[in-house]
């Protein structure tokens, strides 16, 4: 068979990454009706419940902001996180145990390329849910600044970083019991303690710095900055912090995946 010219950069064959992304896109299109509930309906329910419900009880946050407006970027980023972590932990786990990855690796594909493709897809999922829930928030009137489009940048950073964390769990879990730790140990604490639902400043003094080093906190911070149209240097530091974490975690995840798949 004649194949197209292959682009290999730093040992990474671009086609492999593209092909895994395409595979995920084709699989998503087959189940788009069900997928709508994950990407749109479920996070929109959460947004409505918190915004309309708790928003009624809480007078205002951070000097005059309506609670619903405060909480919107956090809920969007939390949803992005859930998508990224689910894809790269449970999704990858089942593709490993089902033998699909072993098959793909018999093509001219490497583990590194699979990891990059999965992180790329996790990032795509984070972006998709950010767009759909963001649209709902616009309808509710909780996002008004055109700067809010910049939340997509936060979603991309979250998708890559949290996706890399998810891969570590997929690589290390031999069964679904240990795999479920990804929710109890990572997703749930991040969901509640990353400044999505309340400003980190209201935490007790001991917890406050802890909350700031959590990997999702800078993502929420960036999203809030864009949603309000108020950007500062702290948002740049946050982005660099997330990129740094990703640059450390992803190679570790790839190493662990290799140990599992190439024995």
């Amino acid at each position: 068979m004649t194949t197209q010219d292959t682009i290999i950069v730093a040992g990474v064959r671009w086609r492999s990454v593209q092909a895994l992304w395409l595979r995920h896109a084709v699989a998503l299109r087959r189940i788009w009706k069900v997928a709508t509930t994950w990407y749109l309906i479920e996070p929109a329910i959460g947004l409505a419940a918190v915004g309309f419900g708790i928003g009624r009880l809480v007078e205002e946050v951070e000097g005059g902001m309506r609670y619903a407006v405060f909480v919107t970027p956090g809920i969007i980023i939390a949803s992005a996180m859930i998508h990224a972590i689910f894809e790269c932990s449970w999704g990858v786990f089942y593709r490993i145990t089902g033998g699909f990855y072993e098959t793909v690796l018999t093509a001219p594909v490497t583990v590194t390329e699979l990891a990059l493709g999965d992180v790329a897809w996790a990032t795509t999922r984070a972006v998709l849910t950010t767009v759909s829930v963001g649209a709902v928030a616009v309808v509710f009137g909780w996002i008004t600044s055109p700067w809010a489009v910049g939340m997509l940048l936060a979603a991309i950073l979250v998708g890559m970083e949290i996706g890399a964390i998810g891969l570590i769990f997929a690589a290390l879990s031999s069964n679904t019991h240990t795999l479920s730790l990804v929710f109890t140990v990572v997703a749930t604490p991040l969901y509640f303690f990353s400044g999505s639902f309340f400003p980190i400043a209201v935490l007790p003094d001991i917890l406050e710095p802890l909350a700031w080093v959590l990997p999702l906190t800078p993502g929420v911070h960036i999203a809030q900055g864009f949603a309000r149209g108020q950007l500062a240097l702290t948002h740049l530091w946050s982005a660099l912090y997330m990129m740094g974490l990703t640059a450390v975690i992803l190679p570790i995840a790839i190493r662990l995946l290799k140990r599992r798949l190439v024995t």
Partner: peptide, 16 residues
């Protein structure tokens, strides 16, 4: 691997 076709024991089909 470009020159090989491999059938593993567990088929390895993509059920999605």
């Amino acid at each position: 691997r470009e020159r090989l076709g491999v059938v593993t024991q567990q088929d390895g089909l993509d059920t999605d």
